[in-house]
Design a protein around this nucleic acid. Structure first.
Lengths: 249, 249
DNA sequence: AACCCCTTTTGACCTCGGTCAATGCGACGA
DNA sequence: TCGTCGCATTGACCGAGGTCAAAAGGGGTT
């Protein structure tokens, strides 16, 4: 895991105390001692948009947290059909203690900075970091719930419902990453800047790029969204868009 | 969680030492002390086919392992569209320590016997059962991988590929539940007895019952499977069926 | 054996989203 | 200012799988 390409930047200068994901990542509940342990062994890596971070089956040598940027977890078939099975946004964890190979392909979709730990040392430290251990289980359970919610989307939702769900998901995650008191309840318009291209969205939603594009157009014509360029979506009425999702999640 | 219906049987007579899932469930790696703790607080419940075991949003009071039978985890939309997001076969764990509500609907599809623990006492005991704790994380990670594999199936596979994948999944899980040295490599024919109706399969695969039925017919006409009644599938050539799956999982 | 109930299968038809191809639209370098 | 390159949009067409409806199996029970 984590290629040592020439164009992968390795840095180590950031202090945990000023880390943007300090209170949401795997270290969220770490106490001073635990944080000191982590701080002493961590190092940073930065990947450019489009770079492969790890491939399914690779030896899993490094675990990490996303600090900035967006990456994807994906699964492919022999003939090239691909499904994104997880979006990795800031604070998400990559890799699993106790596994020795990478389970899914990991790709940077924007520039991504990771806070990394070598797996073996991290696993050894883990027994002395109960708060990290608990947080890891909690995050894994959250991921499992998210994966299962996505299964409903992939198996049963229409293209329009998929797009609406996706926009609200990104809106929700963006809000909770900026304001700590999160709730997408504001009545006025919401600006969403999409971290994904149409193509990547399609791969995430189990659609084709053309269908994604057509649904964006349809939502725009129906007045549910406005586009500012191709990567910024303005939602004038969140409740109206939510009504397109089909469920109460 | 776990209704106290009149027709839910509660029993407590089985010893862990003779339990059919002793070496695969959450207790798989429990030592003698840990097992004694579990043994002293556990109790059994049996549900009839079709009964609801728990509903999304219910207070989560009981955690359990499936001992015998098959249950489903499912997620529904307002208009009734439903997706099964997890199959619960013997040894699978239901519920999560640290959560206080049920995340998905749980339904018995055959008669199901559960080995149950009240949540609070179980959580308290958990700190004294490191092997159980580790096993729980491991099982959760396995579930997450399985969920993500299923996302590829739901998002990208054709109906035929879905059916083939499902048959092989059941075959694999059946084998690993009977023989410990599991590998579906036997050249001769394999008999699969399906725990699910066509309808339930459809709900699991993101299809309709008609499509499931048609694909069974198609696979039969192509000589890839033989049916013995409606619930038993004979696979004369596992490799040939595997070729229909579309990937190397 | 006749009836009922429920699941499964089959048929006819339609629609949503995929496919293939052309066109549009910035951003960037010459 | 003009190409060009990559992404996005739009159009025309098609087909896998959904929908609706009817027929065909099984078990049970009387």
């Amino acid at each position: 895991m984590l290629d040592d390409d020439a164009n992968v930047t390795v840095r180590a200068e950031i202090r945990c105390s000023t880390c943007p994901v300090r209170h949401r990542a795997v270290c969220a509940r770490a106490d001073a001692d635990e944080l000191a342990l982590l701080d002493s062994v961590k190092f940073y890596k930065t990947y450019q948009a489009g770079q492969t971070i790890a491939l399914r089956g690779d030896p899993l040598e490094v675990l990490s947290s996303v600090v900035t940027g967006t990456a994807t977890l994906s699964q492919s078939m022999e003939d090239g059909r691909t499904q994104i099975v997880g979006l990795l946004l800031p604070s998400d964890f990559i890799g699993r203690p106790g596994r020795d190979t990478v389970a899914h392909d990991v790709t940077a979709v924007t520039e991504v900075t990771l806070c990394c730990f070598r797996r073996k040392p991290f696993e050894d430290l883990l027994v002395n970091m109960p708060h990290v251990q608990v947080r890891l289980l909690e995050m894994t359970l959250d991921e499992l719930d998210a994966a299962r919610d996505w299964m409903l989307l992939l198996g049963r939702k229409t293209a329009r419902e998929k797009i609406a769900s996706f926009l609200l998901l990104i809106a929700q995650r963006t809000v909770s990453n900026t304001i700590s008191n999160s709730d997408l309840a504001c009545d006025d318009e919401v600006r969403i800047s999409l971290p994904l291209s149409r193509e990547t969205m399609a791969t995430y939603l189990g659609l084709t790029i053309e269908t994604v594009s057509r649904q964006f157009t349809a939502l725009r014509k129906d007045g549910l969204i406005t586009l500012d360029g191709t990567r910024t979506v303005i939602v004038p009425d969140v409740a109206a868009l939510s009504a397109e999702v089909g469920d109460g999640d």
